[in-house]
Design a protein around this nucleic acid. Structure first.
Length: 869
RNA sequence: GGGCGAUUAGCUCAGUUGGGAGAGCGCCUCCCUUACAAGGAGGAAGUCGCAGGUUCGAGUCCUGCAUCGCCCACCA
């Protein structure tokens, strides 16, 4: 076999992936005879491209699916794509703008057609990227949130919730995103700290005398036009006498508003008096509702001043920010602007468009959240849904406790149109089809004149039913029976509210069961300097570029290796991929060594009789079995970082550095081929979920069973013989080797310069042979026998020139004396001896004895050295 | 304002139930030894953020503080 010296992932990865997919290794059919292992892929936006954060969230899903498939479970990773209503619409509107066309010019039908076309053309981009990274979801089952089946499920859910009274239409204060020209839900708000102004403004008692009045503080003077009251705290002594009086509303002075008392006012902030604008502020809306105040609007959907409800004078038609500037100027001129101070505050912005969100009163559709939230809370509190890391559960809990009704109607065209029709009289008809709507309208209202609601549903409405809609719900499919609920949900912490909580709520409501028992939250990706990775910062790393340079296995391995179970961040830099590439090369070259053994590898994977196994064989088998057990535990706990690290250490530092070297000794030659073949084959299977490509390439080159490692069996620890005491002996040998190498280096000898070793007589021949190999030393003389083998190991010594040796002994003696000193001090401490665990004390005594013995030996050696000098 | 996380070697991080401070990278020295220089061997390097407390004993438990970060929240 003639393999190149360097592993070339580019030559291997695409070839293997194509084979996997063609042979359908990722595909599964529901099989009630085996335990299911299902992961529903969080559907990436149709507009999305993979970045490092995507890679860090999706790689664990691939790892788990591959692991459970190898365990023989009915494992399937269900992929899909989200239509991403607002994001896609924004892309299209922009594209149209370049052609000089507005959405309205095109018309709804043609616009939606174009969105479909766009989705088909560009929507597959991330799938190709996933393939490049080695992800193996069941592509044959890929779904799109807008496809026929899912759309039908969405309609069914909407209609059922409506009929249960859990969806209603009403005028409420909603978040208006002027950028996307639509409402957005509370969960899509992002509060961004910005520098603004806080203006203190006097509302005079009399329209003719501006010198006396109540001073209020505001950051948004443009909303003054819609003020309906001034509110103070009921217990605020400054205003006690003023409650019930009224003040005139500047700058137009066309009406007076009352001074009212409300608990919500913070007397500490500003002047302790607040203007109340129910139509344009969430807190004011509450105050307005409590006090049954009028709710005029002065800002429209274009974020311009409108005079539809109240007079707005010269400000009509102005943009909200222009109006703000004009009003401030006018107040200043009127002498009513008392103060203007810089003020940093959190401004609600749309996390989609980035525009400042405008609270507006609007007639919209809402999901009644409380009845759905209660069971979702209970599911968490009873442990039927748990979070990893645990602390994210509290985030989920707090949100559900304070949940508000969910505004689900959007004023965009790309998405699921509401299954809602209106009669000319304004009666609403909710039905699964136009046909059904007409029948209901005829029956209930005696009309067949219906207009359909133009709004579409929030994207997260369809994502919320993802765990069962993709299984064919509402049809009673085999998939639904076998694969709901899934076994784990893996996603980013940023969508616990937007998505996870809603899946739990809707899953319980429609399926009667939580959609998944475990929610694994993956970390955010930062650069090495601790800055969030983002395009705008210019520190983003493209995982696909990394894959081109270092291979997909290296990308995956390096990401996983940086993951820490409890950490909310993952720091990454390109050098990590470089290291992982080196690791893969190590794997490759170890394979070259194994395949090039002159005696060849046995065809069958059977081990020699235990009695014929050498010390090194027994050690690596023992370590191999420990590694299998550990890997299983770590993957079961979602501890991907330690799992990756465990494979790294086992393969590089145990298998390659020690076992492989040991097989070069003559004493190991009889058994090495079967043991190498056995362990290396198993190691590749353990490695496969993490580095699917190289493990497959190597596994196929070794003696193996089956046509692919993808469906090979996960190693069974119970089938691996272990030899605990031999393993300990080998570990003692390792320490001896390290000691000798160290001594040699200190003497300034190169590996070619042979050193002479004093080896006690009772050190077995086999061990001596290993020693010689691992240290390129020769055994010149056998010293006196040690009491035990372990003792004998510690007595193996290097023959060294006098001066160097004396120096070394002195150093050693000094170190030992300090250890002895520490131990003695501890044992002189009566409290320690009396109160500490007896085993700890005994261990301490033992250590002290050991040190004393060693010191005696060293001192004797030193004395002898002096004598002979 | 509230909640949560982090702080250990120059960098990124381990340190399971309290009992002699660890790894990788980087750095320095030596070695192209017939799997691998994308490699091997060795080495230097830390007041475990600060201050208290509990304990025979604290990187580990408790309290406070500092710095960085994440999430939530109606200070207009």
């Amino acid at each position: 076999m003639d393999l190149p010296k360097h592993y070339d992932p580019q030559a291997v990865e695409p070839r293997l992936y194509a084979r996997w997919e063609q042979n359908g290794y990722f595909h599964e059919e529901p099989d009630p005879a085996r335990p299911p292992f299902i992961i529903c892929m969080p559907p990436p936006n149709v507009t999305a491209r993979a970045h490092l954060g995507t890679a860090s969230t999706f790689t664990p899903m691939d790892v788990l699916t591959r692991y459970h498939r190898m365990l023989g479970e009915n494992a399937d990773w269900l992929p899909g794509v989200d239509h991403a209503a607002i994001a896609t619409e924004a892309v299209l509107v922009k594209e149209l703008a370049r052609e000089g066309v507005r959405r309205e010019d095109l018309g709804r039908n043609r616009f939606v057609e174009r969105a479909w076309e766009w989705s088909r053309t560009y929507g597959g981009a991330i799938d190709a990227q996933f393939r490049r990274l080695g992800f193996g979801p069941d592509w044959q089952r890929s779904r799109f949130t807008m496809d026929e089946g899912l759309s039908a499920a969405v309609v069914r859910v909407f209609v059922q919730l409506y009929r249960e009274g859990l969806i209603y239409r009403g005028t409420r204060l909603i978040n208006w995103d002027p950028g996307s020209h639509s409402t957005i839900s509370d969960a899509e708000l992002e509060y961004v700290e910005r520098d603004g102004q806080l203006w203190r403004i006097r509302y005079p008692y009399s329209k003719d005398d501006s010198s006396a009045g109540v001073e209020i503080a505001t950051t948004r003077p443009e909303t003054m036009l819609a003020d309906v009251a001034v509110a103070v705290h009921p217990k605020d002594p400054r205003y006690a006498g003023l409650i019930g009086r009224s003040v005139w509303l500047p700058p137009l002075f066309d009406r007076a508003v009352p001074i009212i008392a409300d608990e919500a006012v913070d007397p500490e902030f500003g002047t302790g008096a607040v203007k109340v604008t129910p139509a344009h502020d969430p807190l004011d809306y509450e105050i307005g509702t409590r006090n049954t105040l009028a709710m005029p609007s002065v800002i429209d959907v274009e974020a311009r001043i409108t005079g539809a409800d109240v007079p707005v004078g010269p400000y009509v038609g102005l943009d909200r920010f222009d109006a703000r500037a004009r009003i401030v100027d006018d107040l200043r001129r009127l002498g009513l602007l008392i103060a203007e101070t810089p003020h940093r505050h959190a401004v609600a912005t749309s996390d989609r468009s980035g525009d400042i969100v405008e609270p507006l009163l609007s007639l919209q559709w809402f999901v009644k959240a409380a009845p759905l939230a209660a069971p979702a809370l209970e599911a968490y509190r009873s442990g039927r849904v748990r979070f990893v890391p645990e602390r994210y559960g509290r985030t989920y809990e707090q949100w559900l406790e304070n949940i508000r009704d969910w505004n689900v109607s959007r004023q965009i065209w790309w998405g699921h149109q509401l299954p809602v029709w209106y009669t000319s009289a304004g009666d609403e008809v909710v039905a699964e089809s136009e046909q059904e709507a007409l029948e209901i309208a005829q029956r209930t209202y005696g009309t067949r004149e219906l207009t359909r609601d133009p709004d579409t549903l929030d994207t997260w409405f369809s994502s919320g039913i993802w765990p069962f809609s993709i299984l064919g719900w509402p049809k009673k499919s085999a998939e639904l029976r076998c694969w709901y609920p899934s076994q784990a949900m893996i996603t980013g912490g940023d969508i616990i509210f937007l998505w996870v909580a809603r899946m739990v709520m809707l899953g319980i409501h429609f399926m009667g069961k939580v959609p998944f028992p475990d929610v694994v939250i993956t970390p955010l990706v930062f650069d090495a300097a601790g800055r969030k990775m983002s395009k705008s910062l210019g520190n983003a790393i493209d995982p696909l570029e990394l894959a081109e340079r270092y291979g997909a296995d290296a990308v995956r391995f390096s990401i996983l290796r940086q993951m820490r179970l409890e950490s909310q961040e993952l720091r990454y830099q390109e050098s990590r991929a470089h290291e992982a590439r080196n690791f893969n090369n190590k794997v490759w070259n170890a394979t070259r060594y194994v395949l090039a053994l002159p005696e060849g590898l046995p065809r069958a994977m059977t081990l020699p009789q235990p009695s014929s196994l050498t010390l090194a064989d027994r050690w690596i088998l023992t370590r191999y079995r420990d590694t299998i057990v550990r890997m299983g535990n770590l993957l079961d706990e979602y501890d991907f970082g330690n799992a990756a690290e465990t494979m790294w250490r086992f393969i590089w530092y145990e298998f390659c550095d020690w076992y492989l070297e040991a097989t070069k000794a003559d004493v190991n030659r009889a058994t090495r081929a079967p043991v190498l073949s056995y362990v290396w084959n198993g190691a590749m299977r353990l490695l496969h979920p993490i580095a699917p490509f190289i493990s497959e390439e190597v596994w196929l080159a070794l003696p193996h069973d089956g046509e692919t490692i993808v469906t090979a069996n996960w190693p069974d620890p119970l089938e691996v013989p272990t030899f605990e005491s031999d393993a300990r002996e080998f570990a003692a040998l390792q320490r001896a080797v390290e000691r000798i190498r160290n001594a040699r280096a200190e003497m300034g000898l190169t590996p070619r310069d042979h050193v002479a070793l004093d080896v006690p007589a009772n050190v077995p021949e086999e061990v001596s042979a290993l020693l010689v190999l691992l240290t390129s030393a020769s055994i010149e003389r056998k010293g006196p026998a040690g009491e035990s083998i372990g003792d004998a190991f510690s007595q193996i010594g290097v023959r060294t020139p006098h001066g160097l040796l004396a120096e070394r002994y002195r150093k050693q003696a000094a170190q030992l004396r300090s250890e002895i000193d520490r131990g003695e001090k501890k044992l002189r401490n009566e409290a320690f001896v009396a109160r500490a665990d007896a085993r700890v004390v005994a261990k301490e005594r033992e250590k002290l004895e050991g040190y004393r013995g060693e010191l005696a030996r060293v001192e004797a050696a030193l004395a002898k050295l002096k004598e002979s000098a």
